[in-house]
């Protein structure tokens, strides 16, 4: 990661997590780990976010919320599944109300395992996501130039529909 094209904004959603990974995600923004040194800002607004961090497996009720937040984010976007529950369902995989990992609902780009995932691992995952975001951005620009933005990710932008 030589340089970043711009400062990506990060959105966090708790799908059904036990709080463990959530507070570690919040911890990443505090002085000890300071994810802001990568130019990343934690936002609460999906319309301005580039990176979606999801913690916890998806259940009957959070499924719709996760899908909605994902669709509200502008393209290109990346999704990071934080913690083993978000990756596969973890210890709660067999629960009646857990559908499984986040990838059963939306496409996931980076998986960060751990229970709870450590801040170092989360930062590692986010930095990986930045590379993917850069690549997606280039592909997306290319596609728009050649007028195929609809086929590339970006079909849901107002000017494309």
């Amino acid at each position: 990661m030589a340089k970043l094209a711009k400062s990506p904004w990060l959105l966090h959603y708790d799908a059904s997590s036990c709080n463990g990974c959530d507070i570690e995600v919040l911890d990443c923004t505090t002085p000890r780990f300071d994810i802001e040194r990568f130019g990343i800002i934690n936002t609460g607004d999906p319309f301005q976010a580039d990176i979606l961090l999801v913690t916890g497996g998806v259940n009957a009720q959070s499924e719709a919320v996760v899908k909605q937040i994902y669709s509200q984010m502008p393209n290109p976007k990346v999704v990071v599944a934080v913690g083993i529950c978000a990756c596969t369902g973890g210890v709660f995989k067999e629960c009646y109300n857990i559908k499984g990992g986040v990838d059963t609902v939306i496409p996931v780009d980076v998986y960060v395992p751990g229970c709870a995932a450590r801040p170092q691992a989360i930062i590692d995952g986010v930095v990986k996501a930045l590379e993917i975001l850069d690549k997606k951005r280039r592909d997306y620009a290319q596609a728009r130039k050649s007028g195929q933005a609809d086929e590339a990710e970006g079909g849901n932008e107002p000017w494309n529909t």
Partner: peptide, 11 residues
């Protein structure tokens, strides 16, 4: 409520 309900008592 129910956004975080997993049903772990049944485990």
């Amino acid at each position: 409520i129910g956004f975080v309900h997993r049903g772990l008592e049944k485990l």
